[in-house]
């Protein structure tokens, strides 16, 4: 499997069991995402976009079909293996930031590095680089409650990129932000995609946020209904 196809889903079906009922969430889905793509997933509630994101991020398993990410078939991995794989390959950005409230910005960003063998000094360098990249240098000793929503999401992005993963997954990253902060976060994601060649998969309800992506997928009732490759990346960066 070449790495030019960063993510490859083949005949993926995902169902959930509720009592005696089997509920289909994704049905026979095929998808190829090249490396360095910024993909936006849209669709109504219950269309399966977050489930698709979770499959790509290694948080969930497909009921049928295969999910191959960066050359690795996620279906055949044990819980321990996939946990380690996530720590090395995926950066997570959540709608509600999911920062640890009792840890400072620095300590939150440092968390994923505690799973590596880096020295304390190297960890510090990496954390400060990540905080600088999201424009939060000087805020490293602040606790989440001392930051605005936009700043919290920046810390979360710094935490997502600090281990230099190839893939960033973002679940409604601007869903809890005002328009100005949302624009800033989206610009930051575009910069990470363009400047550092990060593959980004973003779930969003916001059409304006989706405009920043290089490709737009629409899901409905567990199926891909629209796939649009956009060429507005330069425009998006320019407008930020």
């Amino acid at each position: 499997m070449g790495k030019e196809h960063s993510i490859e889903l083949r005949n993926v079906t995902k169902t959930y069991k509720r009592d005696e009922f089997t509920i289909p969430v994704l049905t026979d889905l095929d998808l190829v995402v090249p490396e360095g793509e910024f993909l936006a997933l849209m669709g109504p509630s219950g269309s399966g976009k977050t489930t698709l994101l979770n499959l790509i991020a290694g948080l969930d398993n497909a009921t049928q079909g295969s999910v191959i990410v960066h050359g690795q078939d996620l279906g055949g991995m044990s819980d321990g293996e996939i946990t380690r794989w996530r720590s090395e390959n995926v950066g997570f950005i959540f709608q509600l930031y999911n920062l640890i409230p009792v840890l400072t910005a620095f300590e939150n960003v440092e968390l994923p590095l505690l799973l590596t063998n880096l020295s304390k000094r190297k960890r510090r360098d990496n954390v400060m680089t990540a905080l600088r990249a999201v424009g939060l240098e000087g805020r490293e000793d602040h606790y989440p409650r001392q930051l605005s929503g936009g700043q919290e999401q920046r810390v979360a992005i710094a935490r997502a990129i600090v281990t230099d993963p190839f893939l960033l997954v973002a679940d409604e990253p601007t869903g809890d932000l005002d328009r100005k902060s949302a624009e800033e976060i989206l610009s930051l994601l575009q910069q990470l995609n363009k400047g550092f060649n990060k593959t980004i998969v973003m779930v969003t309800h916001d059409p304006e946020a989706a405009q920043r992506a290089s490709r737009l997928l629409h899901l409905d009732k567990g199926k891909l209904v629209h796939d649009e490759v956009r060429n507005n990346l330069e425009e998006g960066v320019a407008s930020s």
Binding site: A57, L59, D79, G80, T83, R84, R86, S87, E88, F92, F94, L96, N98, I100, P101, L111, P112, L115, R159
Partner: peptide, 14 residues
């Protein structure tokens, strides 16, 4: 609970 989920997602083992 959400912190636990976050740490598991980040790669901390059980």
């Amino acid at each position: 609970t959400r912190e636990i989920g976050t740490m598991r997602a980040l790669g901390f083992s059980r």
